[in-house]
Simulated scan of single mutants.
Amino acid sequence: MQELRAQLAEALDEAELDWLKPHIQRDVVVVVHPQLDLLDVGIAIARDDALTVQHWISEQLIHKPSSHQLADWNSNQTKRFQALIVQPYVLVQESVTQGA
């Protein structure tokens, strides 16, 4: 598991909305709640840990972006995200170190 965590940590990157748009159109973007560690979610998905992933979905800690979120993102083109690709998904968390 440490090896998988290291691989995913290398793939973790900051992204802008423009980079995410093609993935949003393909409906593969998954929003990860800030209380979760993006790497932990990536590991659970990569290892097909269905119980954990299902729990997060039921608690709405991971979900597809809502139309309200997409509108908010589109109105703030400077919004930044932490992004992690775990095929076929692109996991994102809104970066908190941005100006309003």
Rank of each mutant, 00 (worst) to 15 (best):
M1E: 07
Q2L: 14
L4Y: 12
L4V: 08
L4F: 12
A6R: 10
A6H: 12
Q7G: 11
Q7E: 11
L8N: 07
L8W: 07
A9T: 10
A9Y: 05
A9F: 06
A9N: 06
E10P: 07
E10M: 15
A11M: 14
A11G: 08
L12S: 08
L12F: 09
D13E: 14
E14K: 15
E14Y: 14
E14F: 10
E14C: 12
A15Y: 04
A15R: 04
A15N: 04
E16W: 10
E16T: 06
E16R: 15
D18M: 07
D18G: 07
D18I: 10
W19V: 12
W19L: 06
L20M: 07
L20R: 14
K21T: 12
K21H: 09
P22C: 08
P22E: 12
P22A: 11
P22F: 09
H23R: 09
I24F: 09
Q25L: 15
Q25R: 15
Q25P: 03
R26P: 07
D27G: 07
D27L: 09
D27C: 11
V28E: 02
V28I: 05
V28T: 06
V28P: 01
V29D: 13
V29H: 06
V30K: 14
V30W: 15
V30L: 15
V31C: 13
H33D: 10
P34L: 11
Q35L: 10
Q35Y: 10
Q35D: 13
L36Y: 03
L36V: 04
L36C: 11
L36I: 05
D37T: 09
D37V: 13
L38W: 12
D40V: 05
D40Y: 00
D40Q: 03
V41A: 08
V41D: 00
I43D: 14
A44H: 02
I45W: 07
A46P: 03
A46C: 01
R47I: 01
R47C: 06
R47L: 08
D48H: 15
D49E: 15
D49N: 13
D49S: 14
A50K: 04
A50R: 05
A50L: 13
L51G: 02
L51C: 06
L51E: 08
V53R: 00
Q54V: 00
W56F: 15
W56M: 04
W56D: 02
I57A: 10
S58Q: 15
S58W: 11
E59S: 13
Q60E: 10
L61C: 00
L61D: 01
H63C: 14
K64D: 09
K64A: 13
P65H: 15
S66G: 05
S66T: 10
S67H: 11
S67W: 05
H68A: 02
H68F: 00
Q69K: 01
Q69A: 02
L70V: 01
L70I: 04
A71G: 08
D72G: 03
W73L: 05
N74R: 09
N76K: 13
Q77A: 09
K79W: 05
R80C: 00
R80N: 01
Q82E: 08
Q82P: 04
A83M: 08
A83E: 03
L84P: 09
L84T: 01
L84A: 10
I85D: 00
I85R: 02
Q87K: 06
Y89T: 08
V92H: 05
V92F: 09
Q93M: 07
E94F: 08
E94C: 05
E94Y: 07
S95K: 10
V96S: 01
T97R: 03
Q98S: 02
Q98P: 00
G99Y: 10
G99V: 12
